[in-house]
Amino acid sequence: MTTVPRTRLDLTRIEAARRVIDPVFLDTPLYPCDPLGQALGCRVSVKLETANPVRSFKGRGTEVVVSGLSGPAAVCASAGNLGQALAWSARGRGVAVTVVASRSAPAVKLERIRALGARLELVDGDFDEARERAVAIAGHDGIRLVEDSLDLETCEGAATIGLELLDTPFDAVLIALGGGAMATGIGHVLKSRAPGVEVVCVQPAGAPAMTRSWHERRVVTTESTSTIADGVAGRRPIREVLDDLLVVADDAVLVREESIVAGMRLLLEHAGLVVEPSAALGVAAVLENRARFAGRHVAVVVCGGNVDLPAYHRWLGNGLP
């Protein structure tokens, strides 16, 4: 008999989340990518979370958040993708959204937040400064603070990806690790329904706080981050999220910046996918440990495609027009 992992998440609520999430975010493509697998030395299936209106998996969680809102307004801190998703989910439901982001966030993400009708407030510093400002706005205005990964709706919305992975027998699933919503969500489902699948979380070496926390089994913060993978560049893990991650993750690994860029290039060359750096973390993990995954069937969750094109061209250095 399968043992359900003891986390904050609930499989019944995760299954119910599918009924409130707009179908445009559900049943995203999942397919074997033989050319990518040949390049990596293992069987690779791609779970494509960029084929939706906000080009990331975040819409799954914001749909659950907004469907349960009792007030007319909400605020969140965002590296870019959550803000877009919250704005998209709110705009047809009469909810006013404020997004707080760093001035250094990719311009393309900031532009899309504005285009979706959210009020955008920029702060100096990084995501954690943006989070502090969002908390202050929520307290002052008396509105809902949406905290990615801490709010169960964001985790259980992301967990619906896990439901869609269950029909294919994988040896391992590689998941980008930032705040932890996607990793804890998918991990909870897999450990509930397919406990033999290895759940491997991947984070940049330049933003290692959650991975260090997982290994030390306590919250470890860092003073700064240095990575092109802006979507996962947090410094202060959330205790409750770490507790869940400790239950459902089999491993958490760090990868180098050059491996992230190489992963982006492989996804372009062998899968025809233009992805943001966070979405290439799983491929980077295989590149750095080919022997571990050799001959195995791995699923790579391609979690975001909101890429700054000038930066993308610089990173890949291949003369794209």
Rank of each mutant, 00 (worst) to 15 (best):
Ala271Thr: 07
Gly83Ser: 07
Val302Phe: 06
Val200His: 04
Val220Ala: 03
Ala181Asp: 10
Val146Asn: 04
Leu273Gly: 14
Val189Glu: 02
Leu254Gly: 01
Thr98His: 11
Arg133Val: 15
Ala87Val: 01
Leu86Asn: 00
Gln38Asp: 12
Val197Trp: 03
Leu40Tyr: 11
His270Asp: 09
Arg193Asp: 03
Pro195Trp: 04
Asp27Ile: 00
Glu15Ile: 14
Glu198Asn: 06
Asp148Arg: 02
Val46Lys: 00
Ile137Cys: 08
Gly282Lys: 05
Leu267Ala: 04
Arg8His: 11
Thr7Gln: 07
Asn318Pro: 13
Val275Gln: 10
Glu49Asn: 05
Gly179Thr: 05
Val253Arg: 09
Trp315Ser: 12
Gly272Ala: 01
Arg103Met: 10
Ala249Pro: 12
Leu268Val: 05
Ser56Trp: 04
Arg212Thr: 02
Thr227Phe: 09
Cys201Arg: 05
Glu132Ile: 14
Ala79Asp: 11
Asp124Ser: 04
Gln38Asn: 15
Arg103Phe: 00
Leu242Ile: 04
Asp126Tyr: 02
Glu129Gln: 13
Arg292Thr: 13
Val199Leu: 09
Lys109Tyr: 05
Arg290Gly: 05
Leu177Tyr: 03
Leu177Thr: 00
Pro106Met: 13
Leu82Ala: 09
Thr221Met: 10
Asn81Val: 00
Glu15Asn: 02
Val4Cys: 08
Asp151Ala: 14
Gly231Ser: 14
Gly304Trp: 11
Arg103Ile: 04
Arg212Gly: 03
Leu273Arg: 13
Pro23Cys: 07
Thr160Asp: 06
Asp128Asn: 12
Glu240Lys: 15
Glu198Pro: 01
Val97Leu: 15
Gly37Trp: 01
Arg55His: 13
Gly319Ile: 07
Thr3Tyr: 15
Gly305Cys: 14
Val241Asn: 09
Glu15Thr: 08
Lys109Ile: 08
Gly94Glu: 08
Thr184Asp: 06
Glu257Ile: 12
Leu320Ala: 08
Cys76Trp: 13
Arg217Glu: 15
Ser149Cys: 14
Thr50Gln: 09
Ser102Arg: 06
Gly117Cys: 05
Glu129Met: 07
Arg256Leu: 13
Ile238Ala: 08
Ser56Val: 00
Ala130Trp: 07
Ile14His: 12
Glu121Tyr: 00
Val64Gln: 10
Leu122Gly: 04
Ser89Tyr: 09
Ala299Tyr: 06
Val54Phe: 02
Pro5Ser: 14
Cys42His: 11
Gly178Ser: 03
Gly80Phe: 11
Ala138Tyr: 02
Pro169Tyr: 03
Ala205Tyr: 02
His297Ser: 08
Glu164Tyr: 02
Thr62Arg: 12
Ala79Leu: 08
Ala285Met: 14
Gly80Val: 12
Leu122Thr: 07
Ala229Phe: 12
Val44Gln: 00
Ala159Cys: 12
Thr211Lys: 00
Pro35Glu: 01
Val220Phe: 11
Arg8Thr: 14
Leu122Asp: 05
Glu276Thr: 14
Gly282Trp: 01
Val232Gly: 01
Arg55Val: 14
Val274His: 10
Arg144Tyr: 04
Gly206Trp: 07
Gly272Tyr: 10
